[in-house]
Amino acid sequence: MTTDTLTPAPAPEVSAPVRHLQRRKGTNLAMTIVLSLAAALTVGVLLWVLGYVAAEGLKYLGPEFLTNTPPGNPADLGGGFLNGIIGSLEVVGIATALSVPPGIAAAVFIVEYGGRIASTVSFLTDVLVGLPTIVTGAFVYAVWVIRFGFSGIAGAIALALVMLPLVIRAAAEMLRLVPHELREASLALGVTRARTIVSVVLPTARSGIITGVMLAVARAMGETAPLLLTALGNDLFIEADPTHRMSTLSLQIFGNAITGFKAAQARAWAGALTLIAIVLLFTIAARLIGRTSRVGGR
């Protein structure tokens, strides 16, 4: 096509519809304000929650709180949630150990092996994410607690069931982010598929997977409903044996908050702040561990 066959286009009337330009500028300004307010509102609410918990929690949080069990009479001042802290770390630790290896394995199956079964697994995972956790607790109560009694183990099983779909979904998402070219590069070197997954795909997705696991851990730390039916709680003394009924931070916060005694409510606020602090510490630690990998999890 040659240019001389084209009729020259009329010069665009740059200045004619001034109204249009002004209207567009006006819309732009209005929308910018609306979106900024929405963002500010969201962040503001979150900061309010954090600030409120911090302000209430700091009234009582201190060495005494972190080194003692609650007083026998909930109306009394003093005491702390040491047994709950120990219980939370143990129960969530066991739940993590139970849920993370199969969760990552399931994600590898879904992403790397594909096929119809894998999409079914993927779909069921999405359904399980939405399962109310009180239902999970009731299920573990029915199949485990009735036979073996209340215990930290039962609580860990319930929390593992809560965590499992979260871990699978987060890990699968991160594995999908690993460029296909890397798998091809590895296979083309004469590396087996299994070794490619272990040595190329998983390390590349590592930090994203760790972030996803930490979200699941944080979620489990705060879960209360399934623990009411499984770990039950134990406010009397420090219990480190997970085969016995155990207290956790979330259970103690719940138990103390609903008493109506000022002293117990102060302990509940301090417990809430402790819970947030523990989750935050874990998240920072996980970020430091997973810093070297390339996709996901910033």
Binding site: E181, A185, S186, A188, V200, P203, T204, S293, R294
Partner: peptide, 12 residues
Amino acid sequence: GMVFQRPNPFPT
């Protein structure tokens, strides 16, 4: 052996 269209060194 094979070399691909886009450079694909292992990022880790």
